[in-house]
């Protein structure tokens, strides 16, 4: 709709929000790029010029790239588990189930809770002798396990908390998608005599492909920021076993105060993320839509 006399109104709707966001975001971004080209640290704070030296160091920083790899593994792993579980849960309370509205509320609760606060609670749960995790597994004759003090178990603990926290988000988006599906294709499948598994593979899953792609991408973006859970549960440890890229940047920047270097890490991280997300988005579209087409 392009109309006479609209110019003033057009700008009045868009500009306040756009300008506020630009003002709040643009400065940090440009500033970070500038800082990344400086040698700003605890000894010589300030914007001197260091050229691309920081980036050269980033390139050879094993600890950073290992953290990136670890982060990618954890993000993709947890998001896939969240997707499968979320989908299953959404299917479970989609139709004729007693108290389904009660269970829907219940299933949503974890995503409403503050991740960092829940991580503090999880830390008490994973306590080796005083926490209920080992107590519960002991009922089945398992454990006790060194949840937060051995590398593999610590990774498992972080992933478990992420799954607890964010499966509801997948559940929410997929259930919303399920509830908006038209009835006709299901009737058609029923008339064709399709069983529940075939109906799911031929009707439900393909029709939820767009929602699935959106949900997976949103969750991957959010999961790429995993950091608070790590901060509270393990502080990246033991050693660097649970250190994610974000947490490593945090250590270099805000704990060791190597601002210039942390900025270079941040920009590298951002660029890698944008490239990866674009590639993953394209792949997802091909896998999920291509299959159903």
């Amino acid at each position: 709709m392009d109309q006479t006399g609209l110019r003033f109104y057009k700008s009045s709707f868009l500009l306040p929000g756009l300008l506020v966001l630009l003002a709040i975001i643009l400065f940090p971004l440009v500033f970070t790029i500038r800082v990344s080209l400086s040698g700003w640290d605890a000894i010589s704070p300030g914007l001197n010029w260091a050229g691309v030296r920081n980036y050269v160091i980033v390139f050879g920083d094993r600890r950073f790239w290992e953290a990136m790899l670890r982060l990618s593994g954890m993000a993709i792993g947890t998001v896939l588990v969240q997707y499968v579980l979320g989908f299953a849960l959404a299917l479970l309370v989609w139709r004729e189930v007693l108290f389904r509205r009660f269970f829907r509320v219940l299933f949503l609760i974890p995503m409403m809770t503050t991740p960092v606060v829940m991580s503090v609670i999880w830390r008490t749960i994973f306590h080796e002798s005083l926490g209920p995790a080992n107590d519960f597994l002991g009922l089945f004759g398992l454990g006790p396990y060194p949840w937060l003090t051995s590398a593999n178990w610590a990774v498992a603990a972080v992933m478990l908390v992420e799954i607890w926290q964010w499966t509801p988000f997948m559940f929410l988006l997929l259930l919303a998608g399920l509830l908006s599906l038209p009835r006709e294709p299901f009737l058609a499948a029923a008339i064709d005599g399709a069983g529940p598994i075939r109906t799911f593979l031929n009707v439900t899953f393909p029709m939820l492909a767009p929602v699935s792609i959106g949900a997976l991408i949103i969750r991957l973006i959010e999961a790429s920021k995993i950091m608070e859970t790590v901060y509270v549960l393990t502080s990246g440890g033991p050693g660097t076993a649970t250190e994610t890229a974000g947490y490593y940047i945090y250590i270099r920047g805000l704990r060791d105060f190597e601002i210039g270097y942390a900025a270079a890490l941040s920009i590298t991280y951002l660029v890698v993320m944008i490239v990866l997300m674009t590639v993953i988005a394209k792949l997802l579209v091909r896998v999920l839509v291509g299959r159903s087409a």
């Binding site: 709709m1 392009d2 109309q3 006479t4 006399g5 609209l6």
Partner: peptide, 25 residues
Amino acid sequence: AGLQETDRGTLTRDGEPFGTLPAWK
């Protein structure tokens, strides 16, 4: 109605220019 802007030409009503008025007038 003024819901779409024209590229060329004029609209008049009772001899008065009309095409430059916004839709709500």
